[in-house]
Structure formats: C-alpha cells, structure tokens
Design a binder for these strands. Sequence first.
DNA 1: ACCTGTGAAATCGTTCACAGCA
DNA 2: TGCTGTGAACGATTTCACAGGT
Lengths: 205, 205
Amino acid sequence: MKSEKISELTTNRMSIYLRCLNTLSAAGIKTIASQELAEQFNLNSAQIRKDLGYFGEFGVRGVGYFVADLRNHITKILGLDKPHRVAIVGAGRLGTALANYQGFGNSNFTVVALFDNDGAKVGQRIGPEEILVHDVRRMEKVVRYEKIDVAVLAVRRGVKVKTVDLTTSLESLSYFLARPQVGAVTSGRRNARFEEVAEQKEREL
Amino acid sequence: MKSEKISELTTNRMSIYLRCLNTLSAAGIKTIASQELAEQFNLNSAQIRKDLGYFGEFGVRGVGYFVADLRNHITKILGLDKPHRVAIVGAGRLGTALANYQGFGNSNFTVVALFDNDGAKVGQRIGPEEILVHDVRRMEKVVRYEKIDVAVLAVRRGVKVKTVDLTTSLESLSYFLARPQVGAVTSGRRNARFEEVAEQKEREL
DNA sequence: ACCTGTGAAATCGTTCACAGCA
DNA sequence: TGCTGTGAACGATTTCACAGGT
C-alpha cells in the first residue's frame, strides 16, 4: 500500500469490482482470485491486484480474496458506508426522472432537493418522497442547510446531451468526497466534485 | 496523415469538435484556430491538431481551419454522411423512451426496430413512428431484413445501470462502422460494434 | 501448487517545441 | 507573423514476470 494519487480510472473500476462482489456474495461464493474476477470484465488480473494494492493488502496468497471481506473494504474505501445527500439541479424531465428513480433506494445516496430557475416549478414537490423544488438562487443556503455534498446537473443551457454512468460516477465521486484534501483527481479534466450528468438543448429525455 | 490505429478517445473528441463546428458555423464564424477550439474544452491545442492529423491535413498555416470545410471532413470521417439503422433491444421504460426520443431526428441515426422477449410486448408499436416490437428470437432475421447496423442494449439481465453518452458514442461508433476491416478499437475493452447503453435489474428508469 | 503484491517493461496518450508554409 | 503538422519528450496506465507467502 503506497500513498500515491488514485486515478479516476481506478476508482471507477473499484465500483465495478464492488458490484461483482455483491453478486458473488449473493451467490454464496466465499473466495475469488484476481484471475477469475478479471475474466468477468476482460481486464488483466494484474490490474485488479494493482488497483487493490493502492489501498492495502486484502488478499491471501495461494487463495485469493475473501468476498465478504473485500466487499467491506471497498465499500469503506469508496466512502459508501457514509450517507450522501444529493441535489439535482434542473427539475425538467430528466431531473424529475432522477428524483423519482428508486435505484438509489438501497444505496447511501439520498436525493434531498431539486433546484430550478423556472418560477412555475419552484415550490412543487416531486416524486413519492415529495422532494421540494427550490429556486436556484437559494442554492447556497439550501446546500448548507440540507448538508448537500453531491450535486447532479440535470439541465443546463447548451448543445450537448451527455450522460454518464450514474452509479459508477457517484461511487467514484464518493471516494474523492471521503478524502477532502488528499486525493486530487489525476485523470480527466472534470472537477470530481461537480459531476455533470446532462447538458441538453430545450427538449429533455 | 499516417495510417495508425485510431483510438476511441480520438473519435470521441472528433464528435465533440463536430458539435463545436456546428455551433461556430451557425454563428457565422468562418475560420478557427486550434488554439481557440482548444479553449472551448480546456484541451491542449496540439491534441486537436494531432487528432485531426490522423485523418489528413485540413488546416492552413497562419490561418487555422475553415469551419465549413472541417465540418464536412469530420462528418465524412465519422461516417455521419451515411444513414445508420438502429435497433433497440429491450422495450421496457428505457427502450421506449429511446424509441420516442426525437433527439436523433436530424441526425443520420434512425430507430427502425425494437426487440423484447416479453410476449405481451411483441407486436406493439411504440412512439410516433410506430416502431414495431419484435420477438428477440427473430432478431437475426429482422436485422438482416431491416439492414440494421447499430444495436443499442436498453435492457439485459444483470445488476448494473450503465449509461453512455449516446451522441458521442454513436458518432464514435459510426467511425468504426465506416471502416469494416481497418480500424480496430485500440482503447477500451468494449466491442465498438456493440455499444451497450444500459444494463439494469428489473426496474427501469 | 497456487495466487498475491509489486518492481520493471511495455504501451498508450498528451504536451512540448519547433520546422515549415501561407 | 501566425498557425499548422509532427517528431520527440514526457506522463500515465497497463501488462509482464517473478519473488515471496500460505
């Protein structure tokens, strides 16, 4: 375990390993070798060992990794054992779909607020959780008050539609959130603390 | 212009350049230097010149690139001057949303078929274009008959939700489709000919 | 015997820096 | 002079290969 900078490529893969470990765990599989894990994603087994090696020595020589054990480690490493409070900026179709999306239900990400600059939308409550749509101008205040630590841009003036893998992105982001000062993002030019989810013209998905 | 393998990173950026050129063109701007273009995306100007350099010499020293000209070149390079016929596999919520999605309207991608293994869905017609839902078992036949050259997986058994940038991905894919034998994908582990859009559990977006 | 952990090598991608042309 | 095109330098990431535990 070295204290190098961790690249986003690595944290993305950590998230993928975690999903695989969850499946293995559910299937009752107790141990797994890097070689077997690698075959699931056609990755090189050395890459998996290297990725894990940045964070510690979790394996047993001659055996492999204990599934439950490694799963716990990665969950901690990615900061997924701590809750995250998410704001969605843009209460259009995509933002609304995200607010309704139950897929985060069993994760530690909770959508706690929406923001929009359309006065007609401000004050509305969206989805089963009745999440309030705030005026964007009140963002700073609401972010502080609601202790929001992740923002998802679901709308912005612009030309592009850009969608990212929400689960991997949020889990990867969680890693960097868990290390306020330490790990600067070494790959990619995006600011890891402000994950863009979509930029679109007028029409939304 | 060398005949090197083109990486997916490059074709992705080509798609981005194209979008920018469309905007510049609409704004009536005639020429652009790599430096100015680079500033739009905080990229290095050499990277843009290098990317373009894989495909030819499109610039004029001392001037830059002619917007209309470069736009035409990139459109051709990405194979976007030729139509693509898209099938969506999975007629669940996401697949239906994609079939309804008008965002491809002015592009050369046309959704011509949906597939599902749910007998209740087979035979239905989706969206304003009334795209027919076929039985997955007839996929091979329909693909041939409808001359489908791009498939989008909108559903699959699995655990993950994975979303990719549709526009950039399809445009990038188009490049590799345009070169049947030549350019193998050099980066990434996905098969460029089978672009995955989403894998989800039961519930869909 | 098997599989991890990790330096070293190889590969891949980006940026520099400058020759050369308009 | 200004900007392209590109070899060379650099930096980052992946893969090899093997020493070292169990």
